[in-house]
Nucleic acid binder design. Structure first.
Length: 471
DNA sequence: TTTTGAGTTGTTCGA
DNA sequence: GTCGAACAACTCAAA
């Protein structure tokens, strides 16, 4: 039986259960559908699309080396997938499961359309290590606190990863369709320094990380001035790497890798939370905080996006994002906390801004991270944990090298002032060529006062949602 | 059922 | 400068 392998966020040949199932069924027609909703939607990103398109070119090359080729269609999947399957005479469509609310609606529509023509739709694992149905508490319930989730997740056995197939029996369509460039799609050019795309580049990053950096990961992952993180987020997002293979390889690393594996578990946790609670894309997981009166302040939001808040770590982070489509994880937390707590702006504004820029932008992880930073997520109640952007900078970038890298205005500012440049005496400002208010902004809010206000606002929301006496 | 233990990533304050 | 306690008593998970 001829089948279609519809690639989505599983752009690899290694450890690909859906691909294996398709090959076992007979000739395979690999397909990718460029969905306008994902290319031009509210949460789309030219950076991410460019990385996707480059990865597709790579996937096509890898398929050709094995006797097949990638077919590309542009349009709505509910129309394009059935049309393609019918044209090629396929009896089934295989996919790797996808978990976002949009993906669920899309896949349900595609499956319905296929069914009308007697074509099967088969979703296999491959996007996560363990499926949402598999990670459960003692009473069989979905878990919403990370630690019990992590325990249950870690206790599940790992299957052996599948090797990449040596050959793929091809079912070719006479019109393969060309992989467009971003310009062909009318998209603005992406940032210059995109990571190398495609499965081989991702596998090389994984090997390099596991050969050494993973051993220091627990100590260096938070350091803004060191390259201590894995930099695999975009690869996991697009499925250039199988998370199962990543975890299997990490556990076999020559040193302690549990901290890194637990970060992969965070990715799974947020995917599972989104699967069980799709409403989190619209509202806080903790409904008590749905009523927080977020401020409307366009100027403050624009200062944040432009990296001109006057707090160097926040500004460096936002400029790193604009310049590279990437932001260090620690910087994401500080920048997000600043938007939600110091500026009291709706975390969903920041969530959208991140999605529009991040090469690794992932609905589940981004939403989970933002809700955590805004203290409205699955965490029980640490709303009084408000990052101090100055302390965070001193702690994780002691010499200010990350700050200076992204804030040229501060390059000549002495270390003792670089974390809080507004404390520079005028003579030092003149000498450093950095006049506060002219070359670099004064803080747009006073952190101490903003913190007090945020505490009061969150406290009030919590009070309002709590019934007074004894339920 | 009720109770008990515990919770990614912090900050501030006062000794 | 360092260190422990307080933050505020909440929710979830499991015994």
């Amino acid at each position: 039986m001829t089948s279609v392998l519809w690639f989505r966020r599983d752009l690899r040949l290694h450890d690909h259960p859906a691909l294996r199932a398709a090959i076992d069924a007979g000739p395979v027609a690999p397909l990718f559908v460029l969905d306008p909703v994902l290319v031009r939607g509210r949460w789309s990103s030219p950076n991410r699309t460019a990385f996707l398109l480059a990865s597709l070119r790579d996937l096509d090359a890898a398929l050709r080396a094995r006797g097949a080729r990638l077919h590309l269609r542009i349009g709505r999947p509910a129309e394009e997938v059935p049309r393609f399957a019918i044209e090629i005479g396929a009896g089934a469509v295989f996919v790797s499961r996808d978990y976002s609310p949009y993906a669920r609606r899309r896949d349900a529509a595609v499956a319905r359309a296929l069914e009308a023509h007697g074509i099967g739709f088969h979703a296999r694992r491959g996007t996560l290590v363990h499926e949402p149905e598999e990670v459960r508490g003692a009473a069989g319930q979905p878990l919403t606190v990370f630690t019990p989730f992590h325990r249950a997740w870690s206790a599940l056995p790992l299957r052996a990863p599948f090797p990449a197939p040596a050959r793929i029996p091809a079912a070719d369509h006479p019109d393969p369709g060309a992989i467009p460039s971003p310009a062909d799609l009318g998209l603005p050019p992406p940032v210059e320094a995109l990571p190398a795309a495609g499965e081989p580049a991702a596998r090389a990053r994984l090997q390099r990380f596991l050969a050494g950096p993973v051993c220091a990961y627990a100590e260096t992952r938070d350091r803004l001035d060191l390259a201590g993180t894995s930099r695999l987020s975009q690869d996991l997002h697009l499925g250039l790497l199988s998370p199962l293979e990543v975890v299997t390889a990490a556990r076999a690393a020559p040193c302690e890798s549990a901290k890194f594996v637990s970060e992969v578990a965070w990715r799974e946790f947020y995917h599972h939370v989104l699967w069980h609670h799709p409403r989190v894309l619209r509202e806080p997981f903790q409904q008590a905080f749905a009523a927080i009166p977020w401020r409307r302040d366009q100027a403050a939001f624009e200062a944040w996006t432009a990296g001109r808040t006057g707090y160097p770590l926040v500004d460096a982070a936002m400029r790193e994002l604009a310049a590279t489509g990437y932001m260090h994880n620690r910087a994401r937390m500080v920048a997000a906390s600043f938007l939600a707590k110091d500026l009291l702006l709706d975390w969903r504004l920041g969530e959208t801004h991140f999605m529009r820029h991040l090469v690794d932008g992932d609905v589940a992880n981004n939403d989970g991270g933002w809700q955590w930073a805004a203290s409205v997520g699955t965490d029980a109640q640490p709303y009084f944990r408000i990052f101090n952007p100055v302390l965070q900078a001193k702690k994780f970038d002691p010499e200010g090298s990350y700050l200076r890298r992204w804030l040229p205005e501060l390059r000549r500012v002495p270390v003792r002032y670089v974390h809080e440049p507004w404390t520079m005496p005028p003579s030092v400002q003149a000498e450093a060529g950095c006049i506060i208010g002219r070359d670099y902004p004064a803080p747009i809010v006073d952190h101490r006062a903003a913190r007090e206000q945020a505490l009061a606002v969150f406290e009030a929301a919590r009070e309002a949602a709590t019934p007074k006496a004894g339920r």
